[in-house]
Design a protein around this nucleic acid. Sequence first.
DNA 1: ACTCATGTCTGAGCCCACTCAGTTATTTGC
DNA 2: GCAAATAACTGAGTGGGCTCAGACATGAGT
Lengths: 201, 201
Amino acid sequence: MPAVSPQPTRRERNKQQKLDRITAAAGELFAEHGVDDVTTQQIADKADIGTGTLFLYAKTKGELLLLVQNAHYAEALKRGRADAETIPDVLDAVMAILQPIVECNRVQVDNGRTYLKEMVFGDPTEPRHSEALHIVAQTEEAIAAVLARGGMLSAADAATAAHVISAIMFLGMAGSADPASRVEDIVQDVRSQVRLLLRSP
Amino acid sequence: MPAVSPQPTRRERNKQQKLDRITAAAGELFAEHGVDDVTTQQIADKADIGTGTLFLYAKTKGELLLLVQNAHYAEALKRGRADAETIPDVLDAVMAILQPIVECNRVQVDNGRTYLKEMVFGDPTEPRHSEALHIVAQTEEAIAAVLARGGMLSAADAATAAHVISAIMFLGMAGSADPASRVEDIVQDVRSQVRLLLRSP
DNA sequence: ACTCATGTCTGAGCCCACTCAGTTATTTGC
DNA sequence: GCAAATAACTGAGTGGGCTCAGACATGAGT
């Protein structure tokens, strides 16, 4: 008989366990085969739940991908933010934030692109979707902070510029469907656009 | 007995007629009900062809939307480009190009957003998709021309800036899923970002 | 005219994301 | 403990985009 569990009621614990199993199953299958080549049945089977149950935890297959990828993106943002602090040049610092995100996005090209699609065109009332938008907002805040650091831009302009930069990165990643296009190329493409925005030498 | 037909062979004429019927049917149904509330069956029925036939003319439902919307977009671009010529201020001229495109995109919000989705995430090997990308390229060229007009930017920078502006517009339109958000608001939002990019007063 | 070859059409059927009416588990009130 | 109430689960079923094996039309060769 263990001491007081972290979760109060049994129901809550069961729900959490199921969500964990779903997350693990979806994560593994998506990573292995790509989101398009995995059926919701497979995920349900691997998580050892009924098909219907799956959709109590994620309203669409897209939400399942958000569930899996959000964690990776948050992680990438954290790394980039830390890197940026050590870099004096503003453009370099901004790119230090973007780099890990692009890398993360290209680990599995199809999944990365579908994730972006889901973010922009998915149902904003779903919790995993809001979570994704929150990460984007955090990313823009981090960029704005770097921009404001230089003191060349007002706070409002820094926020606007950060928004533009996030748009540049977004379409930079979404645009290149070819899995052969390397991360480095995308980053360079984004960099040249950001450089112009910042009027960096 | 009419004189020599514009199309040489009977097969070619039949194919063209069918494509016309499909375009008309899809256009009317999409405009009336929105792309999500129209089935490919309905389109096939209205065009008076079999279901299978439909997919000989457009590989996916998304391609059908591209087929219908591309014409509207090309039209919007044409209007904007003409407007821009009469406007001396660079920022105003750029916005004159963007305005009709945003309007066109918001005629039916769902269709507009699905069109954008299809453009970025659709199959680039399909002919209607290339056509859409061509319109985007033309839009960017028109913007670049306006930017170069001022002489403040090199040709290369103008092209890059035009690309950024198209990204800003794209996410400006895609981002606001709420049909209540008015065209004017989106345009204002885009304008403030473009103003910063151009360092316009 | 009569093949044969080549291009076009077709709809029954497949696949798969998602639903919902019915079942089972958990909690609450007595 | 035992109902009643409530929450969670389930899988057969549904709808819709898309396919493909076979039917049909057209044009070319003779």
